[in-house]
Amino acid sequence: MTALDDASSISTIRVLVVDDHPVFRMGMIALLSSIAGLSVIGEAATVEEAVSAVQSARPDVVVMDLHLGDESGIDATRRILADQPGVGILAVTMMDDDDSVFAAMRAGARGYLLKGASPDDIERAIHAVARGEVLLGPQIAARAIGFLTGSHAADSLAFPQLTSREREVLDLVARGLDNTSISRRLTLSPKTVRNHLSNVFTKLQVPDRSQAIVRAREAGLGRVD
C-alpha cells in the first residue's frame, strides 16, 4: 500500500484498460491489479469493445491508448463520454505530439501520460482522474505550457473565420503533410480531412492547395518546431 491510497476519496476505483497490444494490456492489468484501492473490471482492444465494456461494466476510469490499430482512442473517448460523461478517461500512449495531446483533451480526456510512466505516476493519475481532476505527465504538461505561452498562441489569431480544426488542418498542410498523414496525425478519416480542406479553400477564397499554403505561411502557420 502506498500513501496515495489515503489521498483518494473513492474506496475502490473501477478501471477498464483499453489497448490493442496484448502484452502491454496484460502488463497494465497486472500492475493495476497489484495496487490497493484499484479494481480492474474489464479490458478492450478496439473502439467497439471499449464502448460496449463501458456500457456494461460502468468503470470509474478508463485507461485508454490512443492508437488502436486502424482505429482511434480519441474516437473511443468521444463515444464513451457522449454516453457516460462521468467516466474519467486517462490516455496512456506513445503519442506525444501536440496534435494528439490536444485532440485527446478536446475529446474529454482528463489525464495524459506517456507509456513508460512510472507505476507511481500511473496510480496518481488514476486517482486524480477518478476525482474529476486533470493530470498531465511532466513532459506533456511542459508541451501544453509551451503551446499556450509560446508561438502557437499567436497562430490562433490567424484566419479567425476558420474553426480550430480547420486551422489545424491548414497548419499541417502548410508544413507539407499530405491528406493521409494529416488524417493519421489528427485521428480523422481522410474524407473528413478533405471536407475541412474544402471549407478552408472556400473561406480563404483560394482555388487550390498551393495557394492555401502560401496564405498560411504568410500568416505564420506551417512552422516546424
Rank of each mutant, 00 (worst) to 15 (best):
L136E: 05
D120R: 14
A45R: 11
A53R: 11
F147W: 10
V173E: 08
E43M: 13
L172H: 14
I80T: 05
L68T: 14
A104M: 09
V62D: 01
I89D: 00
A53D: 04
G137R: 01
V51R: 03
R124E: 13
D65L: 06
A117L: 01
L157K: 12
T93S: 06
F159R: 05
G150P: 00
G73F: 06
G146R: 14
P160L: 00
Q55P: 04
G88F: 06
E166D: 12
L157C: 07
G176E: 15
V51Q: 01
I140M: 08
D98R: 02
L66N: 03
A45F: 10
A154H: 12
R78V: 15
Q161R: 07
V173C: 11
L66E: 00
T46F: 15
I126M: 01
D70K: 12
I145Y: 04
M64E: 00
R131P: 02
R124Q: 09
I122V: 13
G108M: 06
G132I: 03
I80A: 07
V87E: 02
A154R: 10
P160G: 05
V62N: 07
L148G: 12
A141K: 07
M105H: 10
L177S: 14
T46W: 13
H152P: 02
V101I: 13
E123G: 06
E71S: 05
R58T: 10
H152W: 15
A82Y: 08
P160V: 00
R143F: 02
D171Y: 11
S56F: 10
G108W: 06
L136R: 09
M94G: 08
S72E: 10
V47L: 12
L170V: 13
V54C: 15
A154N: 07
R124P: 04
E166A: 14
R106N: 11
V54N: 05
T46S: 15
D171W: 10
G73S: 02
V101M: 12
A144H: 10
A45T: 09
G116M: 02
D65R: 09
A44P: 01
Q55I: 12
D120V: 11
I80R: 04
T93D: 00
V134F: 11
D121P: 00
E48D: 14
V62W: 02
M64A: 12
D121V: 01
S100N: 10
R78F: 01
H67P: 05
Q139H: 08
T163R: 13
L81R: 08
S52N: 13
E43L: 07
D65S: 09
I145G: 02
D60L: 04
R165F: 12
S156T: 05
R110W: 08
I41Q: 05
L113R: 00
V169I: 15
E48F: 07
D96M: 01
T149V: 13
R110T: 08
E133G: 14
E71T: 07
F147S: 09
A76P: 09
F102I: 03
G132C: 01
P85K: 12
E71W: 03
Q161N: 04
L66K: 02
A76Q: 03
G88Q: 06
G86V: 05
R175F: 14
A128Q: 04
V134P: 03
I126G: 05
I80P: 09
E49H: 13
A144W: 05
A50F: 07
I41S: 08
H152L: 06
A103H: 02
S118G: 05
M64D: 01
A82E: 15
R167T: 07
I89N: 01
